[in-house]
Write a protein that binds this DNA or RNA. Sequence first.
DNA 1: GCCAGATCGATGACATGTCAACGAAAGCGT
DNA 2: ACGCTTTCGTTGACATGTCATCGATCTGGC
Lengths: 162, 162
Amino acid sequence: MDAPRWLDEREDRAWRGYRRMRRLLDLELARELAQDAGLSEPDYDVLSDLSETPHGQLRLRELADRMLWSRSRLSHHLTRMQQRGLVTREECADDARGSVVVLTPAGRQAIESAAPGHVAAVRRHLIDLLTPAEIDALGALTHRVVDHLGGRAPQPRHDAEV
Amino acid sequence: MDAPRWLDEREDRAWRGYRRMRRLLDLELARELAQDAGLSEPDYDVLSDLSETPHGQLRLRELADRMLWSRSRLSHHLTRMQQRGLVTREECADDARGSVVVLTPAGRQAIESAAPGHVAAVRRHLIDLLTPAEIDALGALTHRVVDHLGGRAPQPRHDAEV
DNA sequence: GCCAGATCGATGACATGTCAACGAAAGCGT
DNA sequence: ACGCTTTCGTTGACATGTCATCGATCTGGC
């Protein structure tokens, strides 16, 4: 705990750059997405994950885990998206507690018309600015960090114990 | 607008990895910070930026710009931090509209005792997992993206016009 | 000096995210 | 079959972030 190892100049540059990029990229992508497609980033992510499944549907639990969201957050968000007609909830056949989130035709329409523009924005502001080597490095490094953090989901524990 | 250029396998890997890392790193760093220091990440960032100035104080406007926050957000956040005794607001000498955010002794104490642990966490979960070459690449790439996005601040425009 | 327009920061209404608690239903050991 | 424990998803209270608006002040052109 003593003599903390501060970040040296290069490490600091990387860390600050990362945080700044993160913020600016978010703002810009969210801005364009809202303007061009009327969706927020969370909306887009939900629709995107759903649309990648065979039938455009997933157990709420499964979707929350994939997105690294709490079930509570997802449940609240789905309520709003449901009101906009982008998804519906159906009862789950094999588990009476569960609910299945289903993409509506309007939801599929929304993601399909939003995707090209969004991917273009991701290219324009990030991918196309990188060399092939940087893209590979970014892929390698991020996956290493993710593995290290043990890609498991959140959802608060009710553990006793210290 | 036709024939969108989707991400190829490597690009997709980098993009997904980035987003996943982003989320997991955030969760973990926020968790440790809250547990060890009783601060949220926004709290930490505010205190950190303030503590890097000569007198631990900044114009609200200036602080908001550095953090890429809206003034509204910062104003709300400061109100809460002020109630916890971490910062105070003082009148600005050369501009009667302005206010100066000042680090209190308790605020300085908070950031100084939180920093070593936070830096250690950043090392443990990110920096120390990367090779020197990756750190340099990350620094280069993030700064390029930031420059491209034109590091300017948000604050909604009231423009007419398309 | 004076006025038009810009900037500063605060505020309230609202959208979104978090957290703890809950009822219902499964799982599991006996 | 029976309880005990876990999991599922929802809910309400609350924390946080966004957006539009406001009054006060500053700035620049005249």
